[in-house]
Amino acid sequence: MNIDFHNHRTQLVLTALAASAATAGLLSAYTTHARQAKRIELDREVRRALASKPGPSTSSEPPSPHDIEVRERRTGTEQIGRHVGLEYDEELVREQLARNYVFFGEEGMAKIRNGRVVIVGCGGVGSWAAVMLVRSGITNIRLVDFDYVTLSSLNRHATATLADVGTPKVKCIERTLNQICRWVQVDARVEIWRKESGSDLLDDADWVIDAIDNITTKVDLLKYCHDKGIKVFSSMGAGAKQDPTRIQISDISFTMYDPLARSVRRRLRLLGVGSGIPVVYSTEVPGDVKLLPLPEEEFQKGDVKELGVFDDFRVRILPVLGPLPSIFGLNIATYILCELAGKPISNPLPVKGRKKLYERIYRDLLHREQKLLGETLK
């Protein structure tokens, strides 16, 4: 196709196209510049707000974000993310959550951002659930755990570093959540959940996540939520497992092969709770992995149960492959986000019926092939 560049109409069209391209480029550049300017101004306001708080200072200049982080890690203060009275630009919030808005839509994201989640147990499973819930738009989250970060926590915890060893797990997660999303409201409770005083921690929750590894407390929590009509999602055993393809979401009544799920299911039935609690668990049959042994000198000191932090809590280390608890936590976060947004996962496939389902699909496939080919297939 030949274009006559000397034609007056052609010149007008080309001029219009060039002008449109130039205008689009200028608008894009202006938008990018405006967003960068907002980010810079917001960072300045944050630094001014933090610098105005009482505390030792050797310089008249506001501290840099790096200095603030180092100071917090060393002294245990909670300066990062504590932007009291400082509003985060809604345009920046929506940009940070843009992919989620595309997926869930305006109405779904409004429900997510207004949702309140309580996580009881903030180790390998709970920490990953917390991080992904906040990254996806949850604004109000409460973290409940009495435990502290240890060196052995670092192979699976979502936020802990070497600098966090010896600090409460909930405080470690709180700091990271505030760094990810400046608008998040985190209520970190360094305490253990007890059924006698559980209402203060749970009654305002839209969803509760049970990531407790003590069976007595776990059953108490699930029973309490069931009786009070509080939605709860429970994590079963991620320890001593290695196959991520066997991780499932189902109702507690459909669980199988998981020793912890079996014990929880039986205890709940005795308490009158047979179903209605979604869980994440693994159908992998545990192998010959066992609890790490205690040194002989510990047994010589007397009853090893006295070494536990609380009664009924294990005193030996359960071998855990780091990626598995994270997958459990991500399953939980995904399920709750979809439920809050009104876009629930459609009928998670119970493992117990999967074999029969495959057999039915196979028979249907054979029948269709017979009709198409007009002959009997074996």
Rank of each mutant, 00 (worst) to 15 (best):
I68P: 11
I68T: 14
E69I: 10
E69P: 01
R71L: 13
R71K: 01
R71G: 00
R71Q: 01
R71W: 06
R71C: 04
R71E: 07
E72I: 04
E72D: 15
T75G: 09
G76E: 03
G76D: 03
G76M: 03
E78W: 12
Q79P: 02
G81C: 03
G81E: 01
G81L: 00
R82K: 14
H83G: 04
V84P: 06
V84T: 15
G85C: 01
G85N: 06
L86M: 12
E87L: 14
Y88M: 09
Y88D: 02
Y88K: 04
D89G: 05
D89E: 11
E90D: 06
E90I: 06
E91R: 09
L92W: 08
R94K: 15
E95F: 12
E95C: 04
Q96Y: 07
Q96G: 07
L97C: 11
L97H: 06
L97F: 13
A98R: 14
A98Q: 13
R99N: 10
Y101L: 08
Y101A: 08
Y101D: 06
V102E: 15
F103Q: 13
F103H: 15
G105C: 09
G105E: 09
G105I: 06
E106T: 14
E106G: 13
E107P: 04
E107G: 12
G108Q: 03
M109H: 05
A110I: 03
K111G: 02
I112K: 04
I112D: 00
R113L: 12
R113I: 11
R113N: 14
N114R: 15
G115H: 01
G115P: 12
G115Y: 04
G115L: 10
G115T: 07
R116A: 07
R116W: 01
R116K: 15
V117M: 03
V117F: 06
V118S: 02
V118N: 00
V118H: 00
I119W: 01
I119K: 02
V120G: 00
V120R: 05
G121A: 07
G121L: 03
C122F: 06
C122W: 04
C122I: 11
C122S: 08
C122H: 07
G123C: 11
G123W: 09
G123H: 11
G124L: 06
G124R: 04
V125G: 01
V125D: 00
S127R: 00
S127Y: 00
W128T: 10
W128I: 03
A129W: 04
A129S: 12
A129M: 04
A130R: 05
A130Y: 12
V131Q: 12
M132F: 12
M132E: 15
V134Q: 02
I138Y: 01
T139Y: 08
T139F: 10
N140W: 03
N140L: 00
I141D: 07
I141W: 12
I141V: 14
I141T: 03
V144N: 09
V144D: 03
D145R: 08
F146K: 12
F146G: 10
D147Q: 08
Y148S: 11
V149F: 14
V149E: 11
T150P: 13
L151C: 09
